[in-house]
Design a protein around this nucleic acid. Structure first.
Length: 747
DNA sequence: AGCACGCCGACT
DNA sequence: GTCGGCGTGCTC
């Protein structure tokens, strides 16, 4: 046997990472002839099955030594680039996730992405089936002329189901032929319709374009009020990335909002970008995945998971609405997609743009401190006016008892609809009333699972828990004292508000929008279109109405309870309220019609409300940053978070309860105190937040750590916590701990 | 994540 | 007597 043959036949040891919940790679033998390189996809025996895996390195030295299994096959997939593999390793370390699970985020679409199967086209053979029904005749008529159609096109042309086509194929009247490969993504033209920008937009666009030419990691905050034209600005950056031959990724917090965006994109670049979210089918995802790796797909618009696509030359990432909480993933691998996008941009040496009208505090601090480039669009584009904001002091001019719309707001609504314009009444509370009490004995209806108040939904005649989804029937008599007709609804929800508005404006066309809107997403979309056409005079809604949609007839926004949410004990309460109210009031006024917002509040002097009213975001951020600085909250101090991962809500609840016991059973120590349940902790206190933050309990102190436990092992956890608080972070069987790592500090 | 093993409750 | 629930543990 020659040396060359020997070399060919010798097996090499390769380290393979499988997309399963394992942190380490496994060693396998691979024939040298297989010529595996890092990044290649393979199948290999794992346990009792054949598993997908990715070659992580060659000639590794870990593993049990000897007795290695052999790689079964090398798969026809573009290799995972080193940059993506490093990102996966980094993310796994940062999120304390097994690397296999992090890999899975990137390869789920690829696992079932076999070689491209050509799209089948069908044409008539000339044979006539034995039973020629009218439907069949229509199909054959549509298919005549020898041209081949897709199954779907034929079915549409003949107005029949796909089954009819199948039957005709079976009987030989139609034949299937392999069609030409479909282009994965139509080419985009960076010069298709370059718009004329306002000077401020042009400056921002120029800054982004300049950052894209020498390839380097550059983060930006693009801050601009609603309507200031942020999208047009980053479109120019995308155009630049395209011209440079690279790729761009645009991340969106919610897929529901992308329809309008895709159209705007097509208006600018001639074609739509590739779309990536859970609603896209497996086949299409597989093609986009491959297209990203080959470079055929140039721009992807997607949800969180798009961050893990195997781009071959990623030059630009845009995170739109960067402050949105939807970027946080809490089940499975938990990560903040905005932060991870910054890390990926760093690894890809790409430009990243975080865009928002109301940036998160941490992003704004990063921009103010010069870590991020800071691009601001201070006014609305094309002379659209900012809405005027006014407070209605509910202590002085509130409505009578049992009513929620103040006289001045009612007057304004009346005038608005009389002019043929739209009014929006905003109340961030679903249902009819947030609390039901018995007037006889004072009994309050609480959820049996989570102790929260049950919200009355009069439309459904039910009491619902908004935390866990528990539903019960609304009884006639008090379950405590048995009194009949003694139950009273306390406080307003959107349903109750609608009832009041209907008595005030009996002739107005009215629509109530909340996330439990009956009829599903399709009906919701249709109703939103109707609103945009002016089919309603008054819209009553929860935060659903705050986002994304254009309401051209809307000129008045009434905020029913601006204080709602400010007293929740959530450390982000002020920030979230400011962002939400800013967005909602920003809906008012389109084109030449000025907008007005009336804000009902009991605390017009509250810093958040005052900053909102003055339109001075600067002031708000200064205040909030100062508060955080004093309290040592992020991004200045460190937040220690104890996070229990759980399969479902019930398990999370069990864990949270075990944690609550544990925290309250901790021995007294000068190092810490236990905070009141549900309250935000003082320095060195341990806190367990309520179900709103479940399954997360928070511990504040010197360390940020996450506890990943498999079951509610209270004793273990207690021992662990004691150790932790006494001695600092460490590893302990099944439970891993890590000192805080700031993703921006990554090195 | 899969997939098996293993130990307790209600059925053919 | 088995079927089957999901808790626990392992995968080169």
């Amino acid at each position: 046997m020659s040396a060359a043959q020997d070399e060919e036949e010798r097996a090499r040891v390769v380290e393979i990472l499988a997309p399963v919940a394992v942190d380490s790679t496994y060693s396998y033998l691979a024939p040298a002839a297989m010529r595996l390189s890092p990044g290649d996809s393979v199948t290999a025996p794992l346990g009792r099955r054949e598993a997908y895996g990715v070659v992580w390195s060659i000639d590794g030295d870990s593993g049990p030594g000897g007795n290695l299994k052999t790689v079964s096959a090398r798969l026809d997939r573009p290799p995972l680039a080193q940059k993506l593999r490093s990102f996966i390793d980094w993310l796994a370390r940062y999120t304390l996730t097994p690397r296999g699970m992090a890999l899975r985020l990137a390869t789920r679409a690829a696992e079932d992405a076999g070689p491209e199967t050509p799209r089948m086209l069908y044409r008539a053979t000339g044979d006539v089936p034995e039973r020629l029904t009218p439907t069949r005749a229509r199909v054959l008529k549509a298919a005549e002329g020898g041209v081949a159609f897709t199954k779907k096109a034929l079915a549409e042309a003949a107005a029949c189901s796909l089954g009819v086509i199948d039957a005709l194929v079976d009987e030989g009247a139609l034949e299937g032929i392999a069609g030409p490969p479909q282009p994965i993504a139509p080419p985009l033209d960076p010069l298709f319709a370059a718009p004329a920008l306002e000077p401020a937009q042009q400056d921002a666009a120029d800054a982004l374009k300049a950052s894209l030419s020498p390839r380097a990691f550059k983060p930006f905050l693009l801050e601009g009020v609603t309507g200031s034209g942020k999208t047009e600005v980053y479109f120019e950056a995308i155009a630049q990335a395209l011209e440079a031959g690279g790729q761009a990724l645009v991340m969106m917090p919610e897929i529901a909002l992308t329809t309008q965006f895709l159209e705007r994109f097509a208006d600018r670049f001639g074609e739509k970008p590739a779309e990536w979210h859970s609603g896209v089918g497996a086949r299409k995802r597989a093609r986009i995945w491959r297209g990203c790796a080959t470079g055929d797909v140039r721009v992807v618009v997607g949800a969180r998971s798009a961050l893990f696509l195997p781009f071959s030359d990623l030059r630009l990432i845009v995170v739109d609405e960067e402050h949105e909480g939807a970027y946080k993933q809490d089940d499975g691998v938990s990560y903040h997609a905005r932060d991870m996008a910054v890390v990926r941009a760093r690894m890809e040496e790409a430009t990243i743009v975080l865009a928002s009208a109301t940036p998160s505090i941490e992003t704004r601090v990063n921009a103010m401190r010069g870590r991020y480039g800071y691009l601001r669009l201070d006014s609305r584009a094309r002379a659209r006016l900012m809405p005027t904001l006014e407070a209605i002091d509910m202590r002085k001019e509130g409505p009578p008892r049992g009513r929620w719309i103040a006289p001045r707001l009612a007057l304004a609504v009346g005038e608005t609809i009389a002019r043929g314009e739209q009014a929006l009444l905003f109340l961030n509370r679903r249902g009819y009333a947030p609390l039901t009490v018995c007037r006889t004995c004072g009994h309050r209806f609480r959820c049996e699972n989570c102790d929260a108040w049950l919200v009355e939904h009069r439309f459904r005649r039910a009491l619902m828990c908004h935390h866990c989804g528990h539903i019960e029937r609304r009884p006639h008599a008090c379950p405590e004292c048995g009194a009949e007709d003694s139950l009273a609804a306390c406080g307003p929800g959107v349903e109750r508000l609608a009832e009041e508005a209907a008595t005030l404006f009996p002739d107005a066309r009215m629509l109530v929008l909340s996330s439990d809107f009956p009829g599903g997403a399709d009906r919701l979309r249709r109703e939103l279109d109707e609103i945009a056409k002016g089919a309603f005079d008054i819209v009553i809604g929860t935060q659903l109405v705050a986002k994304g949609h254009n309401f051209p007839f809307l000129t008045l926004v009434g905020v029913i309870d601006a204080d709602l949410g400010l007293g929740s004990g959530d450390p982000r309460a002020a920030e979230r309220t400011f962002q939400l109210l800013n967005q909602v009031t920003g809906r008012a006024g389109r084109g030449d019609k000025p907008g007005h917002a009336l804000i009902q509040t009991f605390h017009p002097a509250h810093p958040v409300i005052a900053a909102l009213l003055s339109g001075d975001a600067e002031k708000f951020y200064e205040q909030e940053i100062a508060i955080r600085e004093r309290a040592g909250l992020p991004p200045f101090g460190r937040l220690a978070a104890l996070i229990v991962s759980a399969k479902d809500a019930a398990m999370a609840e069990t864990h949270a309860r075990a944690l609550a016991r544990t925290a309250h059973e901790l021995p007294p120590s000068p190092r810490y105190r236990v905070a009141a349940p549900g309250a935000w902790p003082e320095q060195d206190e341990i806190a367990l937040l309520g179900p709103a933050e479940a399954p997360i309990a928070l511990i504040r102190g010197r360390y940020r750590f996450r506890l990943l436990a498999k079951g509610p092992r209270s004793a273990d956890m207690q021992a662990f916590l004691c150790d932790m608080l006494a001695a600092g972070p460490k590893e302990r069987g099944g439970v891993r701990v890590q000192i805080d790592v700031d993703p921006q500090n990554f090195s």
